[in-house]
């Protein structure tokens, strides 16, 4: 596949991931949000991290698109602006900073993904707590939300890693 095609595919995939997050959350609500545990799907974050780390040319304007997709997330899903809209570009910035120091393979990417999941979930938890949308203690948050979220998303990550790497290898 040519690189120019990827430049179109990346934003489309990003928005498909955004809407899939919601649709799958509804279909599998019984499994994902079985009380007291709740695992949040983060396909958008996964798509962004694959793009940052697997694309060698760094020419996809991921920061700008992650801002847009975060804006749509706040707009359509929550109605509270300024959370994912800032959180996702923040993740992209952090990833760009640590990318030169990392030897890229499956395990390092897995670790990076865990760290970023933790950062994003904690960021949204702090922000929503500040505006009294979330009312949970830090201990409950770690056990009932963060843990299951990381477990679920890691499983999806493992399944999607090799197909995604193939896609980016064929481009570069």
């Amino acid at each position: 596949m040519r690189y120019s095609r990827l430049k179109i595919l990346f934003p489309i995939g990003l928005f498909v991931a955004l809407f899939l997050d919601g649709a799958l959350s509804n279909v599998f609500a019984g499994k994902l949000f079985s009380y007291p545990y709740s695992s949040v799907l983060h396909l958008v974050l996964m798509w962004i991290i694959f793009a940052v780390f697997l694309d060698d040319r760094d020419d996809l304007s991921i920061g700008m698109w992650s801002f847009f997709v975060g804006l749509v997330f706040d707009w359509y899903y929550t109605g509270i602006f300024g959370v994912y809209m800032i959180g996702l570009p923040l993740i992209v910035y952090i990833c760009r900073q640590i990318k030169p120091w990392l030897d890229q393979n499956f395990l390092t990417l897995l670790m990076v993904y865990i760290i970023n999941l933790t950062i994003l979930e904690t960021f949204t938890f702090i922000w929503y707590s500040m505006s009294h949308v979330a009312s949970s203690t830090v201990a409950d948050f770690t056990v009932y939300t963060l843990g299951p979220t990381i477990a679920t998303n890691l499983a999806i990550f493992v399944i999607l890693y090799y197909p995604m790497r193939r896609l980016y290898l064929s481009v570069n």
């Binding site: 809407f19 997050d21 919601g22 649709a23 959350s25 509804n26 609500a29 949000f33 709740s38 695992s39 949040v40 799907l41 983060h42 359509y76 899903y77 929550t78 949204t124 938890f125 929503y128 949308v133 979330a134 949970s136 009932y144 939300t145 979220t149």
Partner: peptide
């Protein structure tokens, strides 16, 4: 019809 559910553990919202 229910279109989607907010993928967040803090807001139990449907569209």
């Amino acid at each position: 019809n229910v279109l989607t559910r907010t993928p967040s553990s803090w807001m139990n919202q449907l569209v």
